[in-house]
Design a protein around this nucleic acid. Structure first.
Lengths: 167, 167
DNA sequence: TAACATATGTAATAACGTTACAGCAGGGCA
DNA sequence: TGCCCTGCTGTAACGTTATTACATATGTTA
C-alpha cells in the first residue's frame, strides 16, 4: 500500500483517514513484535477504539463501544490492554482527564524527542507537538533544587484551530 | 507576630512550622476577603488538613482525617470546599495523582509567575518552583500550530533531595 | 423583613481503577 | 508427545475519585 501523507495535528479529516487507521494497525503490530509481545485480538480491539477517534477516550467508554459491537469485557481486561498499549508507546495517557488517546507521531522512540499534549476543550481532540526543549528545561529546573526527575507531564487545555474558526 | 522565614521546597521541617501554619491561615483569610468569599469553618477545616502536610492529599483522605476529629461530611462538601480553595489560589491540584496540596508561594497572583510542581515518589512531598519561562515556551509552541492555550500544567515525579540523601 | 447570593446538607449514582485468583494459549525443550 | 514456562485473559468483588439533583441554611442588602 502506498504511504499516505501524515495528518497534521488538528487538521480536518480527509478521505485518507481510513488508510491511516490501517497504517496505524500495521505500525501497532510491528511495535508489539519489536517488544516481543502479542498484538492480540483484545488489544487490537481496544487500540482500534482509541485510534478511531482523535479525541481522548476513557476506559469505560472504550468498554461501552466494544460492548455495542458485541464484545463484552471487564474493566480489568481493558486496563490491561491499555497498559500494554502504553508500554509499547502506541497510546498516551492524558492525566488531566484520566483518559487515553492514540499516538500519531511514530517517531518518539526513534528520535527520543518527547511531545507535549494539547487537548481541545471544545471538541476533545488531542494533538501532540514536539516539546523536547520544554522537557529539557523542566529537567534542569528540577535538578537546580536537587530534585531528580523521573516522569514528567506537560498538558495544555484550550481551543484548537478548527474550533476557533467555527466561532 | 514576627514574620518567619519562608521554608524552601523540600527543606527539613523545623520548629517554625507551627507558626507557618498560623500564617497560612491568616493569609487564607485575607485571600477569601479579597475575593469577597467566606472562609467558613468547613473551608478552614479542609484547608487545615491540606496545609498540615507537605504531601498531596486526596479528597477522601481529607474526609477521613476530619472524621477522626469529629467532623463527618459528605464527599460533595469536601469537593465544594476544595473548589473554593482552588478558586482563591490557596491550594493546587496535582493532576497526575488526583490530589491536592497547599500553595506555599504566596506570590503567584501578585507576580503572575506560575510554578511547576515536583512530586516526590518516595515521601509524597510536593514542591513548587518558578516555571514562568517554561509556561511561556509551551504557550508559544501551542500558538505556533494555531492552538489557543487556556490551562496549562507541568508536573514532575521523581526523588526529592531529602529522600535521595537517605539512600 | 423580604429578596438575593452564597454556602452547606442529604442521598444517590457515575466514573475511574485495582486486588485476588483461576484458566487458557502458544513456544521451547526433554 | 508431554511437560513446563511465560504471557495473556476471564470472573468476581471491591476500592477510590467525583458529580447530579434537590432541599435547607446563613449572611448581606434594600
Amino acid at each position: 500500500m502506498a504511504a499516505v501523507p501524515a495528518r497534521a495535528p488538528f487538521a480536518a479529516p480527509d478521505k485518507n483517514d481510513g488508510k491511516r487507521l490501517t497504517q496505524m494497525m500495521e505500525r501497532a503490530e510491528a511495535a508489539f513484535d519489536l517488544k516481543e509481545l502479542r498484538f492480540t485480538k483484545l488489544r487490537q480491539q481496544v487500540f482500534g477504539e482509541i485510534a478511531a477517534t482523535h479525541a481522548s477516550i476513557g476506559a469505560y467508554e472504550i468498554m461501552a463501544r466494544m460492548a455495542e459491537k458485541g464484545t463484552r469485557v471487564a474493566p480489568i481486561s481493558v486496563y490491561r490492554a491499555i497498559d500494554a498499549l502504553l508500554d509499547v508507546g502506541l497510546i498516551h495517557r492524558l492525566e488531566s482527564k484520566n483518559a487515553f488517546f492514540a499516538c500519531r507521531r511514530a517517531d518518539h522512540t526513534s528520535t527520543g524527542r518527547r511531545p507535549i499534549f494539547l487537548s481541545c476543550e471544545s471538541c476533545g481532540t488531542v494533538g501532540e507537538v514536539d516539546g523536547q526543549d520544554i522537557f529539557d528545561l523542566t529537567d534542569e529546573r528540577a535538578r537546580s533544587i536537587g530534585f531528580t526527575p523521573r516522569i514528567k507531564f506537560v498538558e495544555i487545555q484550550g481551543m484548537c484551530p478548527r474550533c476557533a474558526e467555527k466561532k
